[in-house]
Computed example of a mutant assay.
Amino acid sequence: MNKRSVHLPVGAGLAALLLATGAVSCGKGQEADKSPAMTPAAAVAKAAKHSEQLTSMHYRVSGRVPQEGRVEADAGLRLKPDMAMSMKVSVPSLGSDATAEVRLVGKAMYINAGEEASKELDGKTWMKLDMSGTDAGKQLDRLGAASQAEQNPAAQSTLLTGADEVKKVGTDTVDGVRTTHYEGTVDIDTLDKSLKKESRLTAEERRKAVEQYRTMGVDELTMDMWIDGSDHTKRFRIRGDADEGPLDLTITFLDYNKPVKVTAPPAGETTDLAEMMKELQAG
């Protein structure tokens, strides 16, 4: 993908990720402050608990990431009964054609980097990478950290529970939804140690996020969370200083627990990247 290689934002996934039991709406028409006696820390913890029980989500990402600069993405992520993801991402700072589409189907990741990339793939528009193989997984990371698509953005939003102090900023309307805005600072080392207290599944999801930030050289995160009247996270923002530049991403959740259908691209339009790498190495 040459210099147009795209570092996928919070996703698969992260995304990550990406929130609650039976939540199928974003809480429109409900008051954000229906529990005025609840402390900021308790409100964030309640939203985090809801996030852990989601089965699917659609979300929008915008902001800046190290190296690439500004990024924009729209994604759908299914967590149960099996994981699947579809994400379209663009990097305006690299030009109007710096776009990519990524799909996760079973153990395979499919990447469509556009017409320019297809010229190097014998006219095929999709690259397939089987993530079940160790070598393939390493190649995936080299393709611009596409493995981030496996991260759950909902799990990343729960990192604010690791802040030493959470404060209420005020109330805002996000995509027509009344929300309460909270903010806090999270130390990566402290957060890493606190994972031992979490449930196995929650700790595993959060550990992926923590490792991502640690690899980027981020020591501390400033996090904002907007919680709707149903105690679900409607939006969250993550800011930090990485080794190769500033990180500032905002993730807005469009819906929860609604169907997310992802299909593999036609075989005739797909190049197996692992096989291509083998041929290059053999040559």
Rank of each mutant, 00 (worst) to 15 (best):
M38A: 13
T179S: 05
M277N: 07
K46A: 10
A43P: 02
D189L: 07
T39D: 06
V65C: 04
Q139T: 11
V102P: 01
D164E: 15
P92F: 03
A100W: 05
E68Q: 13
E101C: 00
G11Y: 02
D192K: 15
L18K: 06
P36Y: 09
L221S: 04
T179H: 03
G11V: 04
T202F: 05
K3I: 06
G123D: 03
V44Q: 00
T21G: 12
T158K: 09
S86H: 13
R64H: 10
L140A: 11
T190F: 05
P66A: 08
G95Q: 03
D82C: 02
H7R: 10
E279L: 09
E269N: 13
H58K: 13
A98P: 02
E68W: 08
L249W: 02
D224P: 00
A155E: 04
S96I: 10
V166D: 02
A41R: 09
D241Y: 07
A155F: 04
L247N: 03
I111T: 07
T134N: 12
K3P: 00
G229E: 08
P9N: 04
Q139R: 12
R4L: 09
L121I: 07
G69V: 05
R206T: 01
R178W: 02
K46C: 01
A154P: 00
A15C: 02
V61L: 12
V210L: 12
A75L: 04
G13M: 02
M1W: 05
A73R: 00
P153A: 10
E198V: 00
N2L: 03
D97A: 14
R235I: 03
K119L: 12
I238Y: 06
E52I: 08
I251F: 06
K119Y: 08
T215P: 04
G29H: 05
L201R: 14
M277P: 00
S147M: 12
V6L: 14
A146H: 11
M85V: 13
G184E: 03
A146F: 08
A32P: 04
Y256T: 11
L54F: 07
T125F: 00
M225P: 04
E220M: 12
A242N: 12
S157C: 14
G76R: 02
H181A: 11
M277A: 10
A84S: 15
V71C: 06
V174C: 02
Q281K: 14
K261R: 04
S93F: 06
E275A: 15
H58T: 10
L129I: 14
G229Y: 06
S90R: 09
S118D: 02
R142T: 09
F236I: 14
